[in-house]
Simulated assay, not measured.
Amino acid sequence: MRSRFGRAGGPSSTAIASVSVLALCCGLWLLRDAAETPAPPQPSAAQAHSGRAGLVPGRPAALPFSPPERIRIPAIDVDAPLTGLSLTGTGSLDAPPPERKNLAGWYEAGTAPGERGTAIVAGHVDNADGPAVFYSLGALRKGSTVEVDRLDGRTAVFTVHAVEAYDARDFPDERVYGAAKRPELRIITCGGGWSRTTGYRGNVVVYAHLTGGRGR
């Protein structure tokens, strides 16, 4: 996946002001193995935002900045290292190397997971050989847990409050990348349906908020 960013941020975090998302993964393996392999799962309408999304009592305090090292999503068997992603000379967010299918990335010029604000994690849904780290992201449900291990020895624990799919032409920049008053996390991959002629039509986005932590 690939994103073009406009940036605006504070002294310790970066809020992404606008974005246009394009898919790098075009499902070449699906074309090759279509008779045997289903397309990645997509979220149902029941997993979309609701009026009370993420409203929980006793919010935990935000954590100080520390780079993330690993992300785990037990409900969909994700356990992957994280690499830093930066912007290219054209303003696009670098994607993790596609040949490393169990690798995800985080936007390291922005908010770190656990800090106050919106942290961004991105990863491939597939590569030329088959499913990649976030292939099953669209199957995630509200209430699922996301754990992010950090360099400072702490684990930031997030709870999913929405999972949505968007067509690339209607990607809601502000909803996905806008600044947050509490620690939030977005996890993004290719999705939005798949076509044999155009590949993935858009993106799947998971919305989660900090609900706990472990470690020192």
Rank of each mutant, 00 (worst) to 15 (best):
M1T: 12
M1G: 01
G6N: 11
A8M: 10
G10Y: 09
S13F: 11
S13N: 08
T14E: 13
A15M: 11
I16C: 02
V21Q: 09
V21P: 00
L22F: 07
A23M: 10
C26Q: 12
C26L: 14
L30A: 10
L31M: 11
D33G: 01
E36K: 06
E36P: 00
A39K: 01
P40T: 07
P40W: 03
Q42E: 15
Q42A: 15
Q42R: 01
S44H: 06
A45F: 03
Q47N: 11
Q47W: 05
A48P: 00
S50L: 10
G51F: 08
R52I: 05
A53P: 07
G54K: 06
G54P: 12
L55F: 04
L55S: 02
V56K: 14
P57F: 14
G58M: 13
P60F: 10
A61Y: 03
A61C: 03
A62Q: 09
L63A: 09
L63K: 11
L63W: 12
P64R: 09
F65H: 09
S66A: 15
S66F: 02
P68T: 03
R72K: 02
P74Y: 04
I76R: 12
D77Q: 15
P81T: 03
G84T: 07
L85G: 02
L85T: 01
L87P: 00
G89E: 13
G89W: 06
G91A: 09
A95G: 01
P96C: 15
P98Q: 10
E99H: 09
K101W: 13
K101L: 09
N102C: 00
L103H: 02
L103T: 03
L103N: 01
A109F: 15
A112P: 08
A112N: 12
A112I: 03
G114Y: 09
G114F: 06
G117D: 01
I120D: 06
V121S: 08
H124D: 00
V125I: 15
A128Q: 09
A128F: 01
P131K: 12
P131S: 08
A132R: 06
A132L: 05
Y135S: 04
L137V: 02
G143N: 13
G143H: 14
V148L: 13
D149W: 07
D149R: 09
R150A: 10
L151C: 03
G153L: 13
T155N: 10
T155M: 07
A156G: 11
V160F: 03
A165K: 08
R169V: 14
P172T: 12
Y177T: 08
G178Y: 02
G178Q: 04
A180C: 03
L185D: 07
L185P: 14
I187F: 05
I188Q: 08
T189M: 11
T189N: 05
G191S: 07
W194F: 14
W194L: 13
W194P: 02
W194G: 06
S195M: 03
S195T: 04
G199Y: 11
Y200G: 00
R201I: 04
V206L: 15
Y207S: 12
G212M: 05
G212V: 02
G215E: 12
R216E: 15
R216S: 14
R216L: 14
